Simulated assay, not measured.
Amino acid sequence: MDVHRIKVACSGCNLRELCLPMGLNPDEMDKLDHLVSTRKRIKRGDALFSAGDSFTSLYAVRSGFFKTRVTSPDGRDQVTGFQMAGEIIGLDGIVNDRHSCDAVALEDAEVCVMPFDEVEALSREFTTLQHHVHRIMSREIVRDHSVMLLLGSMRAEERLAAFLLNLVQRLQARGFSPSEFNLRMTREEIGSYLGMKLETVSRTFSKFVDDGVIEVKQRYVHIKDTEALRRIVNPQTCG
């Protein structure tokens, strides 16, 4: 893992609107630039941090994709989320000062390191940052609730449709196509996240293709009918 101790100017980063609060004055922006002074590069398959590691920092994903996972007592891995550029990883470590999951790069990636003690100190100094950190935490709670809904009450087709819609929405917010993307994760990883067997994931992808909803070529996905995916997730009730 290469560690580059170089100046990272948040003020000039094209992801600042995604991972930093809006409305900071120049002095506050300069202090944030000083806070985020280190980047880490993580090769595909390597862990940014692992369960049990001491918690010291939050990480803003600058490029690449990650998955977070936990391991059950009998050795089975459970994927708990996928993170992309502009999102924050590491919040799991706040409660016990140790990370409770692994964060593994799904492709070569780069993160900005934000030492948490410095984040806390700056948050006390200007409330805009404090509010932003609280929003990030709240977003993680809401995301956890959404996953619980996926796992608890949705059929396989609804789970995969909701997953694809969420993924393309997040990619679109980063300037990517609203209908075409490459999956960074395997179907097995998608199944682990959605609580579905590998064959069920593959069968559901095939059904979407047969129904003309999506086009799939290996990891390339083209959503041909976004409204059809939305109808799968939220079917119209008869009046």
Rank of each mutant, 00 (worst) to 15 (best):
G45H: 03
L91C: 12
V201D: 04
A173Q: 14
V79R: 03
G191K: 09
L32C: 11
N182V: 12
G12N: 13
R187L: 10
A109L: 07
P235L: 03
K67E: 11
C13D: 15
S57C: 13
E17K: 13
N234L: 06
V61F: 04
F208C: 03
A103F: 06
G45F: 04
G86C: 08
N166L: 08
S192Q: 15
M154L: 11
A156E: 13
V168S: 04
Q130A: 15
M84Y: 11
D211H: 07
S54I: 08
S206D: 14
T237W: 07
Q130P: 11
A103Q: 03
H222Q: 11
T200R: 12
D211A: 12
L106Q: 15
S63W: 05
Y220S: 10
A60W: 15
S11M: 09
A60P: 06
Q130L: 11
D2C: 02
G191A: 05
L91P: 00
H99W: 02
V61K: 00
I223M: 03
A161N: 04
G212W: 06
H132C: 06
G81Y: 04
S192H: 09
R230V: 02
D108W: 07
A156P: 02
V36R: 04
P73I: 04
N25I: 08
G12T: 12
F66A: 04
C10A: 12
D92F: 01
G23Y: 10
K31E: 13
L198A: 10
T71R: 15
H99A: 05
K31N: 01
K217S: 09
M29K: 12
R219K: 15
G175S: 02
E28F: 12
L106V: 05
A103K: 02
S50R: 14
T186D: 06
E107Y: 00
R231P: 00
F82N: 00
E188R: 12
K224D: 00
F176P: 01
T237R: 14
N96P: 01
A51V: 09
I214M: 01
C238K: 15
R139A: 15
M185Y: 13
V209H: 05
V221Y: 01
S153N: 13
V147W: 05
V8P: 00
